[in-house]
Design a protein around this nucleic acid. Structure first.
Lengths: 148, 148
DNA sequence: ATGGGGTGTCCAGTCACTGGAAGGTCAAGA
DNA sequence: TCTTGACCTTCCAGTGACTGGACACCCCAT
């Protein structure tokens, strides 16, 4: 198989597959003309990575997972640990994004969105607490005394 | 004010503030010793950006919002448009992450997480549909015929 | 022989910072 | 006066995971 076939079958762009070779995730053989030659096992590795990436695993985690995948002596607890770590990060990101979404949609709701300049969105971003019901404040930190 | 004070008051790292100067978000004056000197308006701009970034706006969007903020002739509809664009992106990201979370937590649930090697997480990533209830398949795309 | 669609390498750019090195500035303490 | 140490400066490089583009080679069909 050459790179285009693998790209089609794995769903990964050829560029990405070359990149994965670059960083050592796959090591396809080479034809006499210099073209990469992928075997079924390369194909499986790439599909594995594609699925793992789709679940949000980092390349580093993919490396660990690939290693565990190839290790018949593995403990499923080790796999579970990697997945759990990822799940925690995803949940944190969701929480962050939900907070953003809530604030944004409240601001959108409060903004008339017409030709007039009055805008609670800008008021909030500008920190104009007087004009805003629930402002988004950034508390200043304590700091060593400054001269001048 | 010098950069440290602004950093404390805006919550942004000094490095980031220098970076923001670099990309033209603020243009603080300079003291005779070369130190940056920030006025209240610089401070407000930076706090504005900090809040906008906290809501997930890109630097580019921050630029637009800053411009609208300074424009007395603005229409709140323009602000609302930027915010709406951002809200859509955030909602899409949340949906993506929730899908990942759901799949991951299902896999975690199915994985014993003990010393044995059997692991539905790896089975799924490996595309071993036979072992998995609801596999995560990547459909191959149609493609121009390939020789060899 | 020509055309077109593959494939190869290499370099640069993305985004928004962040880390680190090497050095200048200033006020307070010994 | 000298030193210490907190602050400040610039510049360069790295992050993650690709992605785009330039340019050239390979191969088959017409």
């Amino acid at each position: 198989m050459q790179i285009g076939d693998v790209a089609d079958r794995s769903g990964l762009p050829a560029k990405t597959i070359r990149y994965y070779e670059d960083i050592g995730l796959v090591t396809p053989a080479r034809d006499t003309n210099g073209y990469r030659v992928f075997g079924e096992s390369d194909m499986h590795r790439l599909s594995f990575v594609a699925r793992a990436r789709a679940l949000g695993f980092t390349i580093k985690q993919c490396r660990s997972l690939l290693e565990l995948w190839g290790d018949q002596e593995r403990a499923s607890a080790d796999v579970r640990a990697v997945a759990g770590e990822q799940l925690v990060k995803i949940e944190a990101k969701i929480a962050d994004l939900e907070a953003m979404r809530d604030t944004l949609s409240r601001l959108m709701h409060d903004c008339s969105g017409d030709a007039r300049p009055d805008c609670p969105i800008l008021d909030t971003l500008g920190g104009d607490a007087a004009k805003v019901a629930t402002p988004l404040e950034v508390e200043p930190q304590a700091r060593v005394a400054r001269r001048r």
